[in-house]
Amino acid sequence: MSRPSPGRFRLQAPPNLDAEHGLDLLRTMVRIRRFEERCVELYSAAKIRGFLHLYIGEEAIATGVMAAIDLDDAAVSTYREHGHAIAKGIGTDVIMAEMLGKVDGVSRGRGGSMHLFDAATRFYGGNAIVAGGIPLAVGLALADKLQGHDRVTVCFFGEGAVDEGAFHESINLASLWNLPVLFACENNHYSMGMALTRAEAQTDLALKAASYAVPAWRVDGMDVLAVEEATRKAVTAIRGGEGPVFIEYETYRFRAHSMYDPDLYRDPDEVAAWKQRDPIPALASLLTELGHLDEDGLATIEAEADAEIDVAVTFAESSPLEPLDDLERFVVSEVTP
């Protein structure tokens, strides 16, 4: 059985990389990383409970994709969505409050880590049924098309979702109806403990998508610049009315599936090799080589992220709990829109 290979080790600088934009990408990735590292501490302190699925190692995808879409575009995500939520523009304070189950959390403490939602940034969750969000994204895109909105819906899912019928039904319908969806497949090679090579008879995911007459290609998901460039190309085509696009972002999670997972199914050498491809130092090195970043600059970015997370934790810890009298709210709508 072949092991997932981390591929090339050095980012290529696009000829026109803007320094400030490169630093913004770095800031976002560092903010996501620091947010989740703090979540691990809070989990160990029993302040965060339930499942906690970390995105550490995969930050380049959320960061690069969100950089390539407009504020008004929609995102549908999975249970490993902290990075998507932060990159989409949701405040780390209200996300952290949700992690702590507080009333000021984005989902008022009803969702937790796996179910972040935010209407203001058009972030449609946080779906913890594998592939369950994919038809939802197709519907969001259908509504945009029917209403004449020039908007794109990005649908994140892991390679495990390709095992599910929902993926196949949904991408077929999106293609048939020429809908503005980006199928953003984050291939981290393992669906929980199940290796892609053990789950799929055909492991070429782009080939599967292409069989639905959808343009499909594979991108290095550890290279934020490559992610952004590929996504921008896809989104331009989608917005131009050319129908859906599928991108496989090849990546790796550096941590176990969740805090419950002893990670018995991955070879430590394989994990170590992929950690060499950490997208954050990779971008930092490139920006340093180009003269856009020095040690102090990187330290400042990290310190700013830490300070932001400090504020978020303070906000979350001081936020009240939802009153028990409100337990049964939001089962039915309270106002007719």
């Binding site: 038809p135 929902a166 039904e169 077929n172 319908l173």
Partner: peptide, 28 residues
């Protein structure tokens, strides 16, 4: 055909797409 939409035999996609459209301003 824009308002009377024949679909493939895809019950997950039929209902899931209708849900998404309903969340985004339509009344499917």
């Amino acid at each position: 055909p824009e308002r009377i939409r024949d679909t493939p035999l895809s019950e997950i996609a039929i209902v899931g797409t209708a849900i998404g459209a309903a969340m985004n301003g339509m009344r499917p």
